[in-house]
Amino acid sequence: MRQEVSARISELNATYGSIEKVSDPEALAESIRELEAQAGDPSLWDDPSHAQKVTSALSAAQAKLRKLESLRGRLDDLPVMYELAEEEGDASIADSELEDLAAAIDALEVTTMLSGPYDEREAVLNIRSGAGGVDAADWAEMLMRMYTRWAEKHGHKVDVYDISYAEEAGIKSATFVVHGEYMYGQLSVEQGAHRLVRISPFDNQARRQTSFAEVEVLPVVEQTDSIEVPDSEIRVDVYRSSGPGGQSVNTTDSAVRLTHIPTGIVVTCQNEKSQIQNKASAMRVLQAKLLDRKRQEERAELDALGAGGNASWGNQMRSYVLHPYQMVKDLRTNYEVGDPSKVLDGDIDGFLEAGIRWRMAEGGANTGA
C-alpha cells in the first residue's frame, strides 16, 4: 500500500474514532432496544402524539446506527481493497472508495458539531427581497429554489407556507419548512444577507446590477418549548389566496394572517385549502419567531453582562458574482467556489460545512443557542 494512502487511512480511522466517542454506538443500540420495546406496546397508540414521537425517534436512531456501522465496515475493508488493487495493478476503484469514504466521514464529523439546544429541529426559512428592485425579487426566488433543490437532493421534504409574489417577477417574500433531523443546525449558518451581482435581465441596457435578499432561519417549535400565545394577543385576518393554486385555494377565504399585537410580528399562510390548517401552520411560524425573539433577548442580557460570544453573524454574509467573473464567496469563512450555477442548483454542502466549522472555531456560538 502506498505510504500516502496508508497515512490517509490512519487519519480517517482517527477521525472516525473521535466520532464514535461522541456518537457512542453502544448507547445508541441500547436506546434503540428501549424504543423498540415502547413501539411494541399495544397501548402506545392510545396517545397518537406520543406514539409519533416514539416511532420517529426509533427510525432516526436506527438510521444513525446503520450509518455508523456502515462507515466502520467500509473503513475496515479499505486496506483489503488496496491489497487486491495492488495485485490487479489498478487502484482506481479503491481510490474512488477512499475519496467517497473521506467525504462521508467528513460530513458525519460536521453533524457531531451540531450540539445546540435546537440543532436537531426542523427549520423554518423566511426569505425576503431587499435592495435592488425587481432584480432583488427575482434573486429572492432564486435563493428559494437553491434551498429547495438542496433539500430535494438530500431527500428532505419542503412545505411552503406562504409566498408573496412581486408584480413584475420573483417574490417579495416566502416562508417554508425543511423537514428532517438537524435541518436547523445545518441551515442556521445561512442566516443573513445574500448579495447577487450580475447583468440584469430586466435592464434593456444590460447594465450590471447588485441586489440583496435576506434569509432568516428559525427552529420549528415543539410543545415542550412553552411558547404560549394568548388569543387576546393575536389578531386573525382571513382573505382569499393569491398566486398559483387550485380552485378552492383561490376562490375561498382560506388564507390566514396572524398579527401578534404586543410585538407587531405578522405571519401569513395560504398553502392549504383549509382555513383551520393555514391558521395552525401560521401559528407554528409565529411561535418560532417568538421563540427566536426570546432567545435573542436572553443572549443580549448575557452579552450585557460580558458572558456572551459573537451573537451576530453580521449583515452581508455571502456574495454571488455572475459578472464580470464567476464566483460565490462566503465572507465569514472565505470559502469560495467558481461555479455559481452549481451552487444555485442546490450544491451548498461545502458552504454549510465551512459555516458550521467556522462557528465552532468562533467559540461554538450557535445562532440558535
Rank of each mutant, 00 (worst) to 15 (best):
V5D: 01
V5C: 03
A7S: 10
S18I: 07
E20L: 15
P25A: 10
E30W: 03
R33N: 07
Q38Y: 06
G40M: 14
D41T: 07
P48L: 09
K53L: 04
S56W: 05
A57D: 15
A60T: 10
A63F: 07
A63M: 12
K67Y: 07
S70G: 15
D76M: 00
L78V: 03
P79C: 01
P79V: 00
M81H: 04
E83A: 06
A102T: 14
A102P: 06
A102K: 12
A102N: 12
D106K: 09
D106E: 12
E109I: 03
T111A: 01
L114S: 07
G116T: 11
Y118H: 13
D119A: 00
E120D: 10
R121K: 07
N126A: 12
I127V: 03
S129E: 08
D138M: 04
W139F: 06
E141L: 09
E141V: 04
Y147N: 06
E152T: 05
V158P: 13
A169C: 15
A169K: 06
V178G: 09
Q186S: 09
A193P: 02
H194L: 03
H194S: 08
R195D: 08
L196Q: 04
S200I: 01
Q205S: 11
A206H: 05
R207H: 03
S211V: 14
F212S: 08
V215Y: 11
V217Y: 14
V220P: 06
I234D: 06
R235P: 10
D237Y: 02
V238I: 13
Y239H: 11
R240D: 14
G246K: 13
S248Q: 15
T252G: 10
D253A: 15
H260F: 08
I261F: 08
V266T: 15
E272M: 11
I276L: 13
A280E: 15
K289F: 06
R293H: 09
G309F: 03
N310V: 04
W313G: 07
Y325Q: 00
V328D: 01
D330L: 01
L331D: 04
E336V: 00
D339Y: 00
G346L: 03
D347I: 03
G355K: 04
M360G: 11
A365L: 05
T367I: 11
G368E: 08
